[in-house]
Design a binder for these strands. Structure first.
Lengths: 247, 247
DNA sequence: CGTCCCCTTGAATGAAGTCAATACGCGTGG
DNA sequence: CCACGCGTATTGACTTCATTCAAGGGGACG
């Protein structure tokens, strides 16, 4: 069986028991849906009845203004949950879309309860994940608000690479990079043309190697430096290790 | 007794019993701290042991880059909680500062437990509040990423005004506005000079009246229109009304 | 072989930033 | 009561980073 990215990610925070991992594995098989690039997982205004979990492919949260301008608000990678809020809020205030082909597990409310009740470690880890997502969102505000084009794109690449690593989806210095420059533009608030030029600048300075759907970062520390990337906000420092004793 | 802004806000989501309101009122009196403008409530990297609740004045979340650039990530108004995350995450990944003089209630973990355990309505309402804050953060990403200066500033003014209304801190078409243009600049990712020019444009078109520390919005619908402001993301539509029957 | 999507490049334009000087408002202390 | 000083607001001239417009190139796929 292919390694479970959600388990990998949550174990950044805490150790999970075999039982915990089993419950997570079961959750990821129930009710799988497939989407083509460009399709919506959920559209703004909808009232989803299930929690969607990304199994494979890249998605995004996005908001569209009336006049068509579109901002990608977050990237969703394998192991990411789309809409935990449904237990409290009614309607979606944004959309979730597929950037590549997408495999999605649909967890019913019951399936989700089964996952959390009786698995306090999993519950805590999902909490941690939700709070980290909040921190990522804050960092995006900083990114778009304060950084220039080079820093902005560089920062985004750093973040995606580190997140992929934490789910076991990146090699030592490279990862799949299946999205278009238009997607990067929508996420950074830049124009496609300028993203293109910015990527070339990153390439020419040797900070990235981006060809086809593969991204390599020969010197991550260097890219982090020019992008003013500080990984603190991802809280990958095994915050939950104080729980380990309770195994 | 002056109306409790936290109660006012949470009742946007659900009805609270007299018992619930009493518990919230008690929480707001314990351990009050006062801060001067510019002081930090918490600084990035700290590991707070208490939850801070704004009683009076305006604060902000902000992040500072190594080279000094500073982005305000959120405004904190009376009734807002600063750091609910402390129960899971160790260190703050951003700072919270005082924009005006600030009165703050410090809730110990025990005080917070008392507030939630045995008060499921309050717990749910705090959840709702946290999710709305997440939605606000997403909207800020859109604001800074896609809107031009006029829309950006206008949108921010709309949001602040609506939020103040929901805590009972705004009149029909005006509210206190105690922050500087530099603060607005740090929140919108614009320069101070350009915020100044933008405010004048809003003034000359009659959309706002801003003098001293008072903001008036003669025609909120009009300001919303030019700012592409859609209040959905604030989820003020009494989402929790389905719980009312359980009173 | 043509079409569609994505990437790339150049030139002209524009929105917002920077720099610098000035004005205002307000509290303090002489 | 007025002068001083400091933080905030305002204004003008110039610069720059990024957008827009427009055209061309390359690869995948039917």
């Amino acid at each position: 069986m292919t390694p479970n990215p959600l388990v990998r990610k949550l174990e950044q925070f805490t150790h999970l028991s075999a039982e915990d991992r089993g419950a997570l594995d079961r959750a990821m098989t129930a009710q799988v849906r497939r989407l083509a690039p460009g399709e919506d997982v959920i559209t703004e205004g909808e009232e989803p009845r299930e929690v969607n979990l990304i199994l494979s492919g890249w998605g995004c949260r996005y908001k569209q203004l009336e006049d068509g301008r579109r901002q990608i608000i977050a990237f969703l990678l394998p192991g990411d949950l789309c809409d935990l809020n449904i237990f409290i809020l009614r309607a979606m205030d944004h959309s979730v879309g597929a950037l590549t082909g997408l495999g999605i597990a649909q967890l019913s409310r019951d399936a989700f309860d089964e996952l959390t009740i009786g698995h306090p470690r999993v519950t805590q880890a999902l909490w941690w994940d939700a709070l980290v997502n909040g921190a990522i969102q804050r960092e995006w505000t900083v990114n778009v608000g304060q950084r220039n084009a080079l820093e902005r794109v560089g920062h985004l690449l750093c973040e995606l690479f580190v997140r992929l690593q934490s789910t076991g989806l990146a090699a030592a210095d490279s990862c799949e990079f299946p999205i278009t420059q238009a997607d990067l533009a929508a996420a950074t608030g830049l124009s496609v043309v300028h993203v293109n030029r910015t990527l070339q600048e990153l390439r020419h300075s040797g900070l990235i190697v981006l060809r086809g759907k593969l991204l390599a970062i020969p010197d991550l520390a260097a890219l982090m430096r020019v992008s003013l990337f500080n990984p603190n906000y991802l809280h990958l420092d095994r915050v939950g290790r104080h729980l380990d004793a309770a195994e």
